[in-house]
């Protein structure tokens, strides 16, 4: 049985509809990727899971209905989120940013902090630095770290590579892979960078103007002519 089940999810910004009947599952321990061009609805999808948009349809986590809960409740049910623009607290230290993440998971602070520090050793060195003075890569790490501090069953990551150098992208990919391998954490990741997604995720869904157009394993999609045409132009 799936850990996260999204069924007939539609999302709206006022009168405009940004997601149309989106349905997919994420099984425990999987890394699932959502790929799509700019404006396809990737961020809207993750925001919707977090209860941050107006939606219809159903989202189940461990059979718990998320669409009726508020964001804080959804976090405490076990959804961690590293959003596109990170939404860090700029004048707080790295450590304080992480500690805010532990707001609903205070009993697991030590263990989660340990996890974040082994995953991103640089954050331990920079723990007293304000995040407003950090590089983009480090901020991305704080963002993922803060999500981990919520003690999630599933981690949502929105375009972690946006604006980052290839070397940094690789570091992040390594960390996420390691996280998935060693702790078995389920990850739902969105990307425009199809290569990055293909190397990380086992299953992928292609989002286009709010519709899921294609789904499959990384291997299958890598060979798909339509995807190649759309994203690699050949």
């Amino acid at each position: 049985m799936a850990l996260l089940e999204v069924k007939n999810l539609s999302a709206f910004y006022g009168m405009a509809q940004s997601l149309h009947d989106v349905s997919f599952d994420v099984n425990e321990g999987e890394i699932v990727g959502i790929i799509g061009a700019n404006g396809a609805g990737k961020s809207t999808l993750l925001d919707s899971i977090m209860g941050l948009t107006k939606t219809t349809g159903s989202i189940l986590l461990d059979n718990e209905e998320l669409t009726v809960a508020n964001t804080a409740k959804i976090v405490s049910f076990g959804v961690g989120y590293a959003p596109e623009r990170a939404n860090l607290f700029p004048y707080m230290s790295v450590e304080d940013n992480l500690l805010v993440g532990a707001y609903t998971a205070r009993e697991a602070i030590e263990q989660n902090l340990e996890l974040v520090n082994t995953l991103f050793p640089v954050l331990k060195e920079r723990r007293n630095q304000e995040t407003s003075t950090q590089s983009g890569g480090e901020r991305q790490m704080v963002s993922v770290g803060r999500a981990l501090m919520t003690n999630p069953k599933v981690l949502l990551i929105d375009e972690p590579t946006i604006g980052l150098a290839p070397k940094v992208c690789n570091d992040i990919a390594d960390a996420l892979r390691k996280l998935n391998k060693e702790t078995g954490l389920t990850i739902l990741i969105t990307e425009q960078n199809v290569n990055f997604a293909l190397t990380l995720a086992e299953k992928l869904h292609v989002l286009e103007t709010g519709h899921i157009r294609m789904s499959g394993t990384a291997e299958a999609l890598a060979k798909d002519p339509k995807l190649n045409e759309a994203y690699f132009g050949h």
Partner: peptide, 8 residues
């Protein structure tokens, strides 16, 4: 938003 997704 950052606060909300941290469970606050």
């Amino acid at each position: 938003k950052g606060a909300a997704i941290s469970g606050v």
